[in-house]
Amino acid sequence: MARPVMLPRRTIVVSGLAFVDTSDPYNGLGNPFAVVIGADVGTWDVARRQMLARGTGAPETVFIDALREPRGQMSSSLDYELDLTILTPTGKSLGACAHGFLGAAHVLTEAGFTEPGHNFTIRTSAGGLARSSLSRSGTVMLHFVSQEPRIAYGHEKALEKIFHLRLPSLADGLPILSVGSPKLTVEVTSSTFAELRLGLDSMDYEELMALQRKLDINGIHLFCRNGNTSLPERVIQVNAYLGRSLCVDRATGVSSAAQVSADPYVRNGQELQITQYTRVGRSASLSLTKGENRHVHVGGAAIVVDYQRLR
């Protein structure tokens, strides 16, 4: 059984970066997160949460609704239970957000509410589910199970309008992959990847939004492989649900997890290092390990950059 953990009486908004480079964590890589923690956060209504999510400046804001600690004779092998709500600046509730999960686990442990070496069972208000472990070295590992893929056909012209670039025609369609956040997944060559990256500022946002509505997805995940190993190596992810100013995501752990879990070139048990890019260059560093039966682990490091107490 698990029992509630007493969270701070004053609400705190913790800002940080997830999927940073562990060898140089302050070099500007990583995706911004905001974690809202306090004894009464679980009772907040939707309007209050949305107002705060608009003001944090993070692409996703994580609200700690409840935390319960392991209890019993075998407590060292049991999980903390973590209930979260994840909101974008536009008020959209997400089922899964790898960098938000990673940030929440890191913040709770750094603040002393959880102990390294334990696992977390994470549930979100939108129906997401994941497991997380925090090593004593500070790296967070997230465990997901990918969903059965959907296949989308006949959208090459829409993609060309979005990116102003001809992409390879695929008669077999493009997969929509998900571990809680569905993305249209597009494999491109290394040279096309370079062109895409340099042209991200000129994307057609309205076309992107229209395609997302049509396919009921949360963005487009584009990746290319290493020419020697054929393993996925570099990724770009774009979306319209965050708003025009946050169209290019800095880190997409859930998108990479879904892609790797379905990748025929990745062996079970194989560990990969994947780098995410924006127009200006590298933006995040992710570690992934493929398991059996669509299981996949995503790892990364996080840092805290600011604490703000709410009145």
Rank of each mutant, 00 (worst) to 15 (best):
22 T>H: 15
50 Q>G: 01
78 L>R: 13
194 A>I: 09
165 L>Y: 11
184 L>Q: 06
152 A>Y: 06
203 M>D: 00
196 L>Y: 04
288 L>D: 00
157 K>V: 15
251 A>M: 10
203 M>E: 02
131 R>G: 11
288 L>W: 04
165 L>C: 11
298 V>W: 00
178 S>G: 06
58 A>E: 07
240 A>M: 08
289 T>P: 01
306 D>L: 13
227 G>T: 09
126 A>K: 12
80 Y>H: 06
181 S>K: 09
295 H>A: 12
180 G>H: 04
264 P>G: 09
124 T>P: 04
195 E>M: 06
97 C>K: 03
175 P>E: 07
155 H>Q: 13
51 M>Q: 12
39 A>L: 13
206 E>N: 13
71 R>G: 10
107 V>W: 03
47 A>K: 10
277 Y>P: 01
46 V>F: 07
240 A>I: 11
109 T>G: 09
172 D>K: 03
291 G>D: 07
181 S>R: 05
108 L>M: 12
298 V>M: 05
25 P>A: 10
225 R>H: 10
171 A>H: 12
310 L>S: 06
206 E>H: 11
174 L>E: 00
187 E>S: 09
152 A>Q: 08
119 N>L: 14
37 I>D: 05
153 Y>A: 07
19 F>N: 00
309 R>H: 13
9 R>Y: 05
293 N>Q: 12
310 L>Q: 14
99 H>R: 12
201 D>Q: 15
106 H>G: 04
81 E>R: 14
211 L>S: 02
106 H>T: 13
80 Y>K: 02
123 R>S: 11
207 E>R: 12
37 I>E: 09
293 N>G: 05
85 T>C: 03
21 D>K: 07
215 L>K: 00
135 S>G: 15
105 A>K: 02
265 Y>P: 00
287 S>P: 01
131 R>T: 14
213 R>C: 13
161 K>Y: 11
74 M>C: 09
132 S>M: 05
286 L>R: 00
208 L>F: 01
